[in-house]
Write a protein that binds this DNA or RNA. Structure first.
Lengths: 190, 190
DNA sequence: ATCATTTCTTGACAAATGTCAAGTGTTTTA
DNA sequence: TAAAACACTTGACATTTGTCAAGAAATGAT
């Protein structure tokens, strides 16, 4: 198991923030341990929590006609939630489950919005987090418009090499938009 | 030319806001007319403005080895900027240009951040805008993982029928991730 | 209105990817 | 540890899409 990544370190790494504010923010998060395979959020339900992954991997996926599509793998040190549902209290489209045993820090919707009012530094971090995530998704859309699946695989190996150690290849295949068979053949070429 | 869409109407449609706040926000935007084909933002430069499209269509695209890839078409009533560059003052990856003559409302980065401090309603709107845009991108990534290009075309016809009237098909092809030839063949089948 | 330019369509063929089925390897669990 | 379940790979073939080239249609400029 990898060493735990601390919430406070990730926040301090992104924005200028003093210890006092870090404590105010950190206090709103609750630790939670989840077992491999455990479902954290089910499609159709409302998402009322945001997760920070201290160790392990969470997976965001959709399940249509028995077919799973993995939208995102959330590794150690990242935040994940079903954003539209979390913000607008809509029913949510995705499932979130644990790929491995995970150690999480959890903030509720209520605490998040209270914290936004209360702590400008959390607001600043939230806007930065949203903007970074937006830019990452933008790059991902662009990769589907402009790159081949071989190039998307190479980029993933480049940027997230560690996920190949812990995440089943079928999820990774889905993540880059190919079948497991095609991923297998692409890997043979590299 | 279609009737102009007002900034204030779009904002009031998304969040609860009084006329006073709408005026404070509206005052920070400056009108601008741009001609078809005009370049608003060039890749490599910093993006210091955010645009609201009152009439017409803006296009966000990348230009690599002489090949254009259209990432997004911004129709009437929507906001558009190169977000990562606008927020973090990084050099920007995309070009933004006018597909048709456009009537815009423009806010500078400076005014945007001042307004965030000054007007909580603008903050609220900004977070909602970011979250909606994020969810839209998420759906788009999902469409590339799970749907066929025929399905992506059908979804575009469903959700944005008007763009087929004003936007060249080659841009639309790129937007859904196929060549113009393939789009032409897909259209024949519908 | 006419010519030039650009955009779109079509055909022929090649390359990439999906599907199905079988077989191998790995992990889980009783 | 043995059996069962699951994950991955490989082969054969079908389908989709890309590429290149040519021609038709639409648009813009004079």
């Amino acid at each position: 198991m990898d060493k735990e990544v601390e919430l406070e370190a990730i926040i301090a790494n992104q924005i200028a923030v003093d210890n006092n504010n870090l404590q105010i923010i950190g206090k709103r998060f609750r630790p939670r341990q989840v077992k491999k395979g455990q479902l954290l959020l089910e499609a159709g339900k409302r998402c009322t929590e945001m997760y920070f992954v201290r160790t392990g991997y969470l997976r965001v996926y959709s399940l249509v006609d028995g077919m799973e599509t993995t939208l995102w793998i959330s590794p150690q040190g990242t935040f994940i939630t079903a954003l539209a549902s979390f913000i607008f209290e809509e029913p949510n489209k995705w499932n979130i489950s644990a790929v491995t045993n995970c150690s999480l820090s959890v903030i509720t919707r209520k605490d998040h919005f209270e914290l936004l009012q209360l702590c400008p530094k959390w607001m600043e971090f939230d806007i930065a987090l949203l903007s970074r995530s937006f830019a990452m998704l933008e790059d991902r859309v662009f990769a589907h418009l402009q790159s081949t699946s071989k190039e998307r695989l190479e980029a993933l190996i480049q940027n997230n090499p560690h996920i190949f150690k812990y995440v089943p290849l079928q999820y990774i295949a889905s993540l880059i938009g190919v079948t497991p068979e095609t991923l297998s053949r692409l890997r043979k070429k590299l």
